[in-house]
Computed example of a mutant assay.
Amino acid sequence: MSTSNQTHDHNKIKAWAEERGGVPAKIKGTGKDEDEGVLRIHFPDKSSDDDNFEKIDWDDFFQNFDDNKLDFLYQDKKADGEESTFHKFVKRQ
């Protein structure tokens, strides 16, 4: 059985992403004015959809993450024990 975790700790999020080859990104065309757009952790080595993502730096990523009071919901391992890249952003409670 796989379990998920939830955090807003910047160091945990960055470490989780980088261990899996993930980079901070936004989905192109989703931002307005000062808004960065929809945040994602993008895994370039595991995706054929690179054209839809714009890499951003961690400072910009976490500024947007905190401004929107988000938490990071993530999974370390899949049910079969394989490393997981499952994640999503949820409103912080």
Rank of each mutant, 00 (worst) to 15 (best):
M1E: 15
S2H: 07
S2V: 08
S2I: 11
T3D: 14
S4M: 12
S4P: 05
N5P: 02
N5W: 08
N5K: 13
N5I: 05
N5E: 10
Q6P: 02
Q6K: 01
Q6M: 12
T7C: 07
T7K: 04
H8R: 12
H8P: 01
H8N: 14
D9R: 07
D9P: 03
H10S: 12
K12A: 04
K12V: 06
I13T: 03
K14S: 02
A15S: 14
A15F: 13
W16M: 00
W16N: 00
A17L: 07
E18Y: 02
E18G: 00
E19L: 11
E19S: 05
R20A: 03
G21D: 09
G22N: 03
G22H: 02
V23H: 05
V23N: 04
V23C: 05
V23A: 04
V23R: 06
P24S: 02
A25V: 03
K26V: 15
K26C: 13
K26R: 15
K26F: 08
K28I: 15
K28A: 14
K28M: 09
T30P: 07
G31K: 01
G31D: 01
K32P: 03
D33L: 14
D33T: 06
E34A: 14
E34Q: 14
E34D: 14
D35S: 12
E36G: 07
E36F: 10
E36H: 09
E36C: 07
G37C: 06
G37N: 09
V38P: 01
V38F: 13
L39I: 07
L39D: 01
R40Y: 07
R40M: 06
H42M: 09
H42A: 08
F43D: 01
P44K: 02
P44M: 04
K46D: 13
K46T: 15
K46L: 15
S47D: 14
S48H: 10
D49I: 09
D49V: 12
D49E: 15
D50I: 14
D50C: 12
D51L: 12
D51E: 15
D51R: 02
D51V: 09
N52P: 05
N52D: 15
N52Q: 14
F53V: 07
F53G: 06
F53R: 05
E54M: 08
K55I: 09
D57A: 06
D57Q: 08
F61L: 02
F62M: 06
F62T: 00
F62W: 03
F62Y: 07
F62H: 03
Q63N: 13
Q63S: 11
N64T: 12
N64W: 03
F65T: 00
F65E: 00
F65D: 00
D66V: 13
N68M: 10
N68P: 05
K69S: 15
L70G: 00
L70I: 05
L70V: 03
L70H: 04
D71E: 11
D71V: 06
F72S: 00
F72Q: 01
L73E: 07
L73C: 07
Y74V: 01
Y74R: 00
Q75E: 09
D76I: 05
D76K: 04
K77C: 05
K77L: 13
K77F: 10
K77W: 05
D80S: 11
D80I: 10
D80T: 08
D80A: 11
E82S: 15
E82L: 13
E82C: 06
E83L: 15
S84G: 03
T85S: 14
T85A: 04
K88D: 11
F89W: 01
F89K: 00
V90Q: 10
K91Q: 10
K91L: 09
R92E: 12
R92Y: 13
